[in-house]
């Protein structure tokens, strides 16, 4: 019985492992799966990437992604050829074109504030006030008035009765009441 169970579990594990493996996109220096190529096109795979997959993300803690941002067009290929020579002969425009071929955004661009916090704050306040208005509306139009026992007179009477019954006399409410002086203990 136990043997069968373990065998079954083992088979399940192997099956699931195979399923995961089939979906994962292996990236190696020695040729790339067609599946990857359908996603990234002709983009050059230049590194391991942050998770071993051929994808692009601008991340400050992992600045060099696995693939180049642009596919090698003839223009870019010509620039790459020129890049093999002296870099002092490259113009600023060419250097910038090369940078944009490799990377989508500069650090200052992808770290620039988006201003999204304003909409978040706005939505939060809007929905909070909506909830408060709903509550006020319910109080005004839906709920009955609170029962009589919520009134101050009734509450006093109830407290008096609790003390008269000497509820919880050791550590509780009645222990704080001085029955001689008919007042709270000081």
């Amino acid at each position: 019985m136990l043997m069968e169970l373990t065998k079954m579990a083992g088979r399940l594990l192997a099956l699931s492992a195979r399923a995961v493996h089939a979906r994962a996109i292996p990236v190696g220096a020695c040729g790339v799966h067609d599946e990857v190529r359908t996603v990234i096109g002709n983009r050059e795979i230049v590194g391991y990437g942050y998770n071993g997959q051929a994808n692009y993300a601008d991340r400050a803690e992992f600045p060099l992604p696995a693939i180049r941002w642009k596919e090698p067009t003839p223009d870019i290929a010509a620039l790459r050829e020129k890049e093999k020579g002296d870099w002092r002969k490259l113009s600023l425009e060419e250097k910038k074109a090369l940078y944009r071929a490799s990377f989508r955004q500069t650090f200052s661009e992808f770290k620039a504030p988006t201003g999204e916090w304003k909409s978040i704050l706005g939505y939060t306040l809007f929905f909070t006030s909506l909830g408060l208005w709903l509550f006020i509306g319910m109080k005004l139009f839906v709920y009955n008035p609170v029962p009589e026992s919520f009134g101050e007179e009734n509450q006093r009477a109830q407290l008096r009765r609790i003390l008269d019954l000497r509820v919880n006399p050791v550590f509780g409410l009645s222990s704080k009441w001085d029955y001689e002086k008919n007042d709270w203990k000081k």
Binding site: P63, L64, R80, E83, K95, L98, Y99, A101, S102, F103
Partner: peptide, 8 residues
Amino acid sequence: NDHSLAVR
């Protein structure tokens, strides 16, 4: 031969 790598 990767200038943009250096800049990055």
